[in-house]
Design a protein around this nucleic acid. Structure first.
Lengths: 221, 221
DNA sequence: ACCTGAACACCGTTCAAGT
DNA sequence: ACCTGAACACCGTTCAAGT
């Protein structure tokens, strides 16, 4: 089966072992994150997937935190920013944020990263730049625009993350449901009253975006 | 010093060892979280602080995740909800959120927990109930109110968390600064232009709250 | 310059055994 | 009913040693 019995062992399971590189490490890490969730993003697991020891990774990456930032940005590769020439600024803005949301939905781990990692990669920057551009088209500038990007991205990220946490574990959803169901109507009359709406989703994302946009448009400075 | 030399060893360093209890565990955990940040919240460290082994904790708490939820809620103990009789609904709403923000500022670890833990404890519920009440006073009901609470709390939490991440490490701030400073003006003209505003804070929190409120008020359904 | 093995100092959780 | 010790299966990171 192998033409020599000295050192080289046949590798049929993998498409020939690529040499290690930052790129390959990030790619592998993202794959693990997508498949196993946030617990898949570990130095040891990445190393194992690359058929090496964890210490080998430190040649290309200073630590897990830095690697996480790379993985986040690489994960945002698939976000689609519509041609700004085509639709209205608002439609384009919503479409871009929707694309961002979709990417995060598809891998909850990325949503978690996005929530806790400061975005400095090129894909994050491209998305921010795009949103700023649309806001500018819409006549929103300066401070409002600067803070608006933050607020819009934060909102999208957290909607994705919440959705993800709920999907991830049936337990979690059950926990919430039982918690809200057994709510003390005397102590929390308003929450008890709104129970259904608090848990509904769907239109929610759109609603939030509209609210934020409307608020920003009003409050020009 | 001790009246018997059999089993009981003198305990002068601690105010007499209290028996273990869920309450004591949560209290100790919160203390550790406040002092050491999120890495302080570990079963083993809590156990050590309580002078016992980690396995002892599992009598009172099913796992770390559950404990975290308790710790979060206990941490929100100090949030002040002003008497609804006194000021305007808007002032009261802002004051409550400001108090929430202050509590999170004081211990970044709690902010992190708040961002990633579904709030089901009594203090979280009380805060939600209070905000819903103020929104109701302001004429905001039903869906808008339900989603509005979420949005307002999310916003406050994340402002605190971002601030915390920046304070925690001088490194992080430096990373952002150098990243933005060396920004490719050709590729990201809008970001480069708004660099200063993107990093400023202070008025920021208030601005976001106003934006969200204004947006909600407009968009009644 | 890159890779490896072994070690250090940690994790959460379980479980049989003690009181 | 509670506590303990020891173990299992993990972590991130470092470092001397190899090629």
């Amino acid at each position: 089966m192998n033409n020599s019995n000295r050192t080289v062992i046949s590798r049929r399971s993998r498409p020939a072992k690529e040499p290690l590189s930052k790129d390959l490490i990030v790619k592998t890490a993202l794959e693990l994150l997508k498949n196993e969730g946030s617990s898949g993003l570990s130095m040891r697991k990445i190393a194992k997937a690359l058929d090496t020891g964890p210490s080998s990774l430190y040649v290309y990456v200073t630590n897990l935190q830095e690697l996480s930032a790379y993985v986040l940005d690489y994960g945002l590769d698939k976000v689609v920013l519509p041609d700004a020439q085509d639709g209205s600024w608002k439609t384009n803005l919503f479409d871009a944020l929707n694309s961002y949301l979709t990417v995060l939905y598809e891998s909850p781990g990325i949503a978690e990263l996005a929530l806790t990692t400061i975005p400095v990669g090129s894909h994050s920057l491209a998305l921010m730049e795009y949103i700023l551009g649309r806001l500018h088209e819409g006549g929103i500038r300066s401070t409002s625009a600067a803070w608006g990007v933050d607020l819009l991205l934060l909102y999208a990220t957290s909607v994705a993350f919440e959705q993800a946490s709920r999907d991830q574990k049936g337990t979690t959803l059950n926990t919430i449901l039982t918690s809200y169901e057994s709510l003390d109507v005397m102590r929390y009359p308003m929450i008890a009253n709104l129970r259904d709406e608090l848990l509904s989703s769907g239109e929610r994302f759109r609603w939030g975006l509209e609210v934020i946009l409307q608020g920003i448009l009003q409050r020009q400075d």
